[in-house]
Simulated scan of single mutants.
Amino acid sequence: MLILVIGLVIFFSLHSVRMLMPNWRESSMARHGVMRWRMRYGLITLLAGAFIVMGFIQMRASPIWLWFPPIWTYHLAALIMLLSLFFVGSAIVPKTTMKRKLGYPLLIAIKLWAFAHLISNGSLADVMVFGSFLIWSIACFAVYRRRDRKAGVVYDDFDESSIPFNLAAFVFTMLSWFAIVFFLHLAVIGVSPLM
Rank of each mutant, 00 (worst) to 15 (best):
P69W: 02
L134V: 03
L118R: 08
G103P: 12
L134R: 02
A78P: 01
G89I: 08
P94M: 08
I135D: 03
A91V: 04
I108C: 02
E26C: 04
L76D: 00
M98F: 15
S132H: 05
I44Q: 00
A30S: 13
R31N: 08
S62I: 09
P69G: 05
P63W: 07
Y41L: 09
H117G: 04
L85D: 04
A50T: 13
N121L: 05
F86D: 05
G55I: 08
N121I: 08
R100V: 01
S16H: 09
F56C: 00
V17G: 02
M81Y: 03
M59E: 15
G55F: 09
I52H: 03
S137A: 15
L107M: 14
W113N: 10
F115G: 04
W37Q: 03
Q58V: 05
W113V: 09
V17K: 08
G33D: 09
A48K: 11
R25V: 08
G55V: 06
S90Y: 05
E26M: 14
L79A: 13
L76E: 02
Q58N: 14
N23R: 15
S123R: 11
A109S: 15
S28R: 13
V93H: 05
M81C: 06
F133R: 03
W24F: 14
V127K: 09
S90Q: 03
P63S: 05
S90N: 10
W136Q: 07
S132V: 07
R31F: 09
I57P: 01
F86Y: 15
G55K: 05
S120N: 10
W65Y: 12
R31A: 12
M21S: 13
V17D: 01
R38C: 06
S120T: 00
N23S: 15
G103D: 12
G55N: 10
F56P: 04
W136P: 02
T45K: 04
G131T: 12
I119N: 00
T97P: 06
I110E: 03
L102F: 14
G122H: 09
P105N: 09
L20S: 11
G55Y: 09
S123G: 13
K101S: 11
V53N: 05
L43M: 14
I135W: 01
A61V: 02
